[in-house]
């Protein structure tokens, strides 16, 4: 079957990315370098590159599967974690932590990470609350509510930035660009359980998501529990995105582009589409990050800037090409 072949190709690409990208960068490493016991090469490889690539693959996969699930849930091609204000909440949290400063670390993570996670969960709680209350029976209203919350968060971020001095403002702007620069495996191990939980939950909802493609009325008549589905998909994707934004900052467009491409390639069945998005999104972000490291080496372009630069025009092309 076509979707199986595509999945195998994607798995191959994913594995190749995992094995090759850690060798590439401002300094090319060969397998020989790694075997030669050169401490610098081994630190660069094991403490910097491998965790960075793993983080990119987890984050890219997580962004793509939550983008996919939200697009199906809202029946709207523009839905993604960022349009729903989840990243907006994370940004607000991060910016507040940067402004207030000096409360160091919590649970081994920098205050900024903790605050952005809390911010993302806060916004998600508001959206979930709306979804569960009777006020927004229409899913489209929920999407609009998300956009409104997102805009409010951006406004608050601007306000906090205005209050901050320029070093802090600069840090805030820098945080907004997103980045995958990590040392060691703390961030990867933090993200891993969230990603596994997200993958499993969304796969369990695959029939509901498939049926939702045929319209809410029909889906509900056949037994889809819309509340449960909304709660599950929104809850899982916001927890997932909150967890990853906390360590990488916002990285846009991955959740938008990857599902769109793969839907054309794999077909609409979420059973293949969810793993495909996980694999494709992971490989895509790791390759983007490789590009971001390479373009301006030895300087590093924040990967969020690169995905945004690629994302806009690419999405436009996709829309125009899709109308043929």
């Amino acid at each position: 079957m076509r979707s199986r072949r595509v999945l195998l190709i994607l798995a191959g690409l994913w594995l190749a990315t995992l094995l090759l990208t850690p060798l590439l960068g401002s300094r090319l490493l060969s397998v020989g370098d790694l075997l030669s016991q050169d401490p610098t090469a081994s630190t660069i490889f094991w403490s910097l590159r491998v965790p960075r690539v793993l983080l990119a693959m987890l984050a890219g996969g997580a962004l793509a599967i939550s983008g996919l699930a939200l697009q199906t849930l809202f029946r709207n091609p523009l839905a993604e974690p960022y349009t729903l204000g989840i990243a907006g909440g994370a940004a607000l949290g991060a910016v507040l932590a940067l402004q207030i400063e000096g409360f160091g670390q919590a649970l081994g993570f920098p205050a900024v990470a903790v605050a952005s996670f809390v911010g993302a969960l806060g916004v998600s709680a508001v959206i979930l609350g709306l979804a569960m209350s009777g006020y927004t029976r229409e899913t489209s209203t929920l999407l609009l509510a998300g956009i409104a919350i997102s805009l409010s968060c951006s406004a608050l971020v601007l306000f906090v930035q205005y209050l901050a001095d320029f070093t802090k403002t600069f840090r805030m702007v820098r945080w907004m660009m997103g980045g995958l620069s990590v040392v060691g495996y703390g961030e990867v191990l933090w993200l891993l359980p969230w990603v596994v939980m997200g993958l499993v939950t969304l796969l369990l909802f695959r029939w509901d998501l498939n049926l939702l493609l045929t319209g809410e009325e029909l889906a509900v008549s056949r037994g889809v529990d819309l509340k449960k589905l909304r709660f599950g998909v929104l809850g899982v994707s916001s927890a997932l995105v909150g967890a990853l934004v906390a360590v990488t900052g916002p990285i846009g467009f991955v959740g938008l582009i990857v599902p769109h491409i793969l839907r054309r390639w794999v077909g609409p069945d979420h059973l293949s589409l969810i793993p495909a998005c996980f694999l494709g999104g992971g490989a895509f972000l790791a390759l983007c990050d490789l590009g971001a490291r390479a373009i301006m080496a030895p300087a590093e372009l924040p990967v969020g800037v690169l995905t945004a630069l690629l994302g806009g025009p690419f999405f436009l092309w996709l829309l125009i090409a899709g109308r043929r």
Binding site: R75, W207, N210, L211, L213, T214, G215, E217, L218, A219, S221, R222, G223, V224, R263, P268, D269
Partner: peptide, 25 residues
Amino acid sequence: AYVPQSHPLRIPLTVEQMVLLGRYP
């Protein structure tokens, strides 16, 4: 079984996939 009056304009499924979704229950 229910056949509503209106369906989404674009359903990205094949006929067989659409009919299989009748098995959801």
